[in-house]
């Protein structure tokens, strides 16, 4: 697997990125890699964000992103590479929450709240036992897209292909389920199958996003482009494209701005601020159209 993954030659993509973004900072290889990674990750997060917004799953996204902390802790505890333990643990937490939501009579925010506090407590317990591991918290909080390596980029490419396949095959069904699961079941949509696949993919995307923009801002990367897209679009197809456009433009401009000498800001935060500008614009447009309360 690893051999096959490393065989993909990304040099032409990096040169293309350099010519599309003719900025001084884009001459550096690490910036080209970061740009490519964020251009893969941002549209993934935005497209999954459409369903996060439609299903009102922002709290679910929060719980998964915080499980990244516990994922790192597990890695430290058992001597596993955190880059492996984080997504695997996130996936387990995501699927467990979905299973508990489907089976339990408790409300979904209660189920998520319970899991949320458990994963945070677990992470803190491990860190408090070994204070030297606390250095990982900085990266966990703010993310660090600039240190991304080629193996991770290859993993992102695989995830991108999987996720876009899902969004092609399942977009309509996910809309159906988002509208009303009972109606979808009666009309022969495989609700459970789609919900589990979605929860699994969303968990992995969230974990990768934590590592790009940090745990504090990961939910924003998911829901701000989708929320702005919702303000701007009048149909389900348009919402998808608006979310993609907003995420790509915000991600690329955020990365470039953060690398300018006059800015010198954290990349994740700058990207989210760009998304937020889009949101404000979309909100004003929605107000002008008189659609804000509908």
């Amino acid at each position: 697997m690893k051999v096959a993954v490393n065989m993909v030659d990304l040099t032409p993509i990096f040169s293309a990125i350099q010519s599309v973004f003719p900025f001084e900072c884009m001459q550096f290889n690490f910036m080209q890699q970061a740009m490519f990674a964020i251009l893969l990750l941002a549209p993934m997060a935005a497209s999954m964000g459409i369903q996060v917004v439609n299903f009102r799953m922002a709290f679910f996204a929060d719980a998964i992103s915080h499980s990244a902390f516990a994922g790192v802790a597990i890695g430290l505890l058992f001597g596993i590479n955190p880059q492996f333990s984080m997504p695997v643990f996130g996936l387990i937490v995501g699927l467990s929450i979905m299973a508990m939501q489907r089976k339990s009579s408790l409300s979904s925010d209660t189920v998520i709240g319970v899991v949320f506090s458990a994963v945070i407590a677990f992470g803190l317990a491990v860190v408090s036992r070994d204070p030297s591991s606390a250095t990982n918290i900085q990266q966990f909080l703010y993310g660090d897209i600039l240190t991304i390596g080629k193996t991770n980029i290859n993993l992102l490419i695989i995830l991108f292909v999987l996720l876009m396949t899902f969004q092609t095959w399942g977009y309509n069904q996910m809309l159906y389920i988002g509208l009303n699961p009972s109606l979808a079941t009666a009309h022969r949509v495989k609700v459970a199958l789609f919900q589990y696949i979605y929860a699994g993919l969303l968990s992995v995307v969230i974990i990768f996003s934590v590592w790009a923009v940090g745990v504090l801002l990961v939910t924003a990367l998911l829901i701000v482009p989708a929320a702005a897209a919702r303000n701007l679009s009048r149909s389900a197809g348009a919402m998808f494209w608006w979310a993609i456009i907003i995420s790509i433009t915000s991600a690329s401009s955020g990365l470039i701005i953060s690398a300018q000498d006059w800015a010198g800001t954290a990349t994740g935060a700058t990207i989210i601020l760009c998304c937020f500008c889009w949101f404000v614009l979309s909100f004003i447009i929605a107000l002008l159209r008189g659609e804000s309360k509908k």
């Binding site: 439609n54 509208l179 919702r230 197809g237 509908k294």
Partner: peptide, 13 residues
């Protein structure tokens, strides 16, 4: 049908 009325979804969609 309890659903999110703000969803940008037309009848044809």
């Amino acid at each position: 049908l309890s659903f999110d009325r703000g969803m940008p979804l037309t009848v044809l969609d």
